[in-house]
Amino acid sequence: MTIKVLRGNPTPEELAAALAVVRARAAAAASVAAAGAQPSPPDAWSAPERLVPRPLPQPGPMSWTRAHWPA
């Protein structure tokens, strides 16, 4: 891997910090790809069941009567 500075005059500490970030990201991406990690399941806060705890009324001739009444 080659990193070239095109503009500016970074200090050695700034270059070392940038290189550490690039290497850490590359290592993390390689370990995820090598492990074949599955994406984590969504947590409960994003689950649709939390927002609608009961089943929605199914379409039908009288479904409009059940639309706003609690179960």
Rank of each mutant, 00 (worst) to 15 (best):
W64A: 06
A16L: 10
E49R: 12
G36H: 04
N9D: 15
A33F: 04
V32I: 12
G36N: 08
A47T: 03
A44N: 08
P53M: 11
E13M: 05
R23N: 10
P48K: 04
E14Y: 03
S46K: 09
W45I: 05
P70D: 11
A18N: 03
V22G: 00
L6K: 13
A26W: 04
N9I: 10
S63H: 12
V52R: 08
P55E: 15
A16M: 05
V52F: 15
P53Y: 12
P48F: 03
P42N: 07
T2G: 09
P10C: 04
T65W: 10
P61V: 09
P61G: 00
M62S: 01
A18Q: 06
G8N: 10
A29Y: 06
V5Q: 08
D43I: 06
P42G: 14
G8M: 04
A30P: 08
A18C: 03
V21W: 01
R23G: 02
V52Q: 13
A33P: 02
P59T: 03
P70E: 11
P10G: 01
A30T: 05
A34K: 06
V22A: 05
A24R: 04
R54A: 01
V32Y: 10
M1Y: 07
T2D: 13
Q38G: 01
A24T: 03
A37K: 08
G8F: 06
P39N: 08
E49T: 12
A44K: 13
R25Q: 09
M1T: 10
A33M: 07
W69C: 00
A24C: 01
A47C: 13
V21L: 10
E49H: 12
S40I: 12
V22Q: 05
Q58K: 15
G60W: 15
A29C: 01
R25F: 00
G36R: 02
P10V: 03
P70Y: 12
A28I: 05
A67M: 14
L19A: 04
P39R: 09
A34M: 07
P10I: 04
S31H: 13
T11I: 04
A18M: 14
P42T: 09
T11V: 09
P39V: 12
R7H: 12
A71S: 05
Q58P: 04
S31W: 11
H68R: 12
P48E: 14
P57R: 05
P41C: 00
A29N: 04
A37V: 13
A28L: 10
H68L: 15
S31L: 12
A67C: 04
L15T: 07
W45M: 14
A47W: 15
N9E: 13
P41V: 07
L6A: 02
T11P: 00
A30F: 06
P53Q: 15
A47F: 09
L15H: 01
G60H: 06
S46F: 11
W45E: 14
L56W: 15
A17D: 01
P12W: 02
A17M: 01
A18L: 08
W45D: 11
E49Q: 14
M62R: 05
W45A: 07
A20H: 07
P55K: 13
S63V: 12
T11M: 02
L19H: 02
A28K: 12
A47H: 12
E13V: 09
H68P: 03
L15V: 09
A47N: 14
P42A: 14
P53E: 13
P59L: 08
G8S: 09
